Simulated assay, not measured.
Amino acid sequence: MTTPILRAAHGFTSRAGGVSVGAYAGLNLDDRHDDPAAVFENRRRLTAELGFGPDQVSRLEQVHGTDVVQASPGQVQRADAQVTDQSGVLLAVATADCYPVLLEDPGAGRLEDGVPEDGVSGAGVLGAAHAGWRGTAGNIVGQTVRAMVRLGARPERIRAAVGPGICAAQYPVGGEVMSAFEQAGLGQFVQGGHLDLRAANLHLLLMAGLRPEHLRASGRCSTESQFYSYRRDAGVTGRMWAVIGTPLQARQGQGQDQGGVRRTQA
Score class of each variant (00 low, 15 high):
1 M>P: 11
4 P>Q: 11
11 G>S: 14
15 R>S: 09
21 V>M: 02
22 G>D: 12
27 L>V: 10
32 R>K: 10
37 A>V: 11
41 E>R: 15
47 T>P: 01
51 G>H: 04
51 G>P: 02
55 D>I: 06
60 L>H: 03
66 T>I: 13
66 T>P: 06
68 V>P: 00
70 Q>R: 14
73 P>R: 09
75 Q>F: 05
75 Q>Y: 03
94 A>S: 07
94 A>Y: 06
94 A>R: 13
98 C>L: 08
100 P>K: 14
103 L>N: 08
105 D>A: 03
114 G>D: 01
117 E>V: 14
118 D>F: 04
124 G>M: 15
125 V>Q: 05
127 G>T: 08
131 A>M: 07
136 T>R: 12
138 G>M: 15
141 V>S: 11
144 T>Y: 07
146 R>V: 07
147 A>E: 06
147 A>G: 10
152 G>V: 02
154 R>W: 06
155 P>R: 11
157 R>W: 11
168 A>G: 13
170 Q>R: 07
175 G>M: 01
178 M>P: 01
180 A>T: 01
182 E>L: 00
185 G>I: 02
188 Q>D: 05
188 Q>A: 12
189 F>D: 00
189 F>C: 03
190 V>F: 02
194 H>T: 07
196 D>T: 01
196 D>V: 03
200 A>E: 00
201 N>M: 00
202 L>V: 06
203 H>Q: 04
209 G>M: 10
210 L>G: 12
210 L>W: 07
212 P>R: 15
214 H>W: 07
215 L>M: 04
215 L>C: 08
219 G>P: 03
222 S>I: 08
230 Y>W: 14
235 G>T: 09
236 V>I: 09
239 R>Q: 10
242 A>D: 09
246 T>H: 06
246 T>L: 07
265 Q>K: 02
